[in-house]
Amino acid sequence: MTYFSYFKAECLVLFRRKQNLVNALLFFALVIVLFPLGVDPSKAFLAPAAGGIIWCAAALATVISLESMFKEDYADGSLEQLLVSGLSISWLVLLKVLVHWLGMIIPLLLLTPIFSEMLFLPDGVLGVLMTTLLLGTPGLFLIGSIGASLTVSLRQGALLMLLLILPFYFPIIIFSTSAIQAVASGLPYSGLLAIIGAISLLALVMSPLMTPICLKASVR
């Protein structure tokens, strides 16, 4: 096994299991639809809230889709094989996160303009919303991988993972929606983008350290 053959295999799994990805995107869409239906469909409510709604939906969809990230590997024994392969498990985790992130972020970025139009996102804000998604979602995925490794041995881990991981998503969501509000009211926002990027970088350091610990402890 090499890093490259692992990467190829991960891409192939993602492709063969594309229904999981479709489900996560449908979930993303449904959460968004909940807001006009459940709160208020008027432009007065939706326009200022649009960025926040899209971000919350993206965070929830990320947790839901990542929960099963290591589950199949754990069940069929390939996780064990990865751990004894002699390759660095930290790199393997990063590769896996990369594949999952790419699989999710591309359709997410394609859907975001459509939903922002439906939620009456103010003009000129879309670009910043996309940038925050691009900068912030790596953090969501990297932190999410820690949660996924914690709950890998549980049959019903989604709820627990939400409870564990969502609090760590708060800063990313807060700074992203703040950046969107800032640009909507004509304030500078580049500092906020830098903070989002910094949080993602911190997650990039933490995830490869913490995820292998939980994975190893789960396979015993």
Partner: peptide
């Protein structure tokens, strides 16, 4: 792991709020 990740993130969460 959750304790360590939490304690690293706590200042960020606090600062963000």
């Amino acid at each position: 792991v959750i304790c360590v990740v939490g304690v690293i993130n706590l200042p960020i969460i606090k600062y963000s709020v």
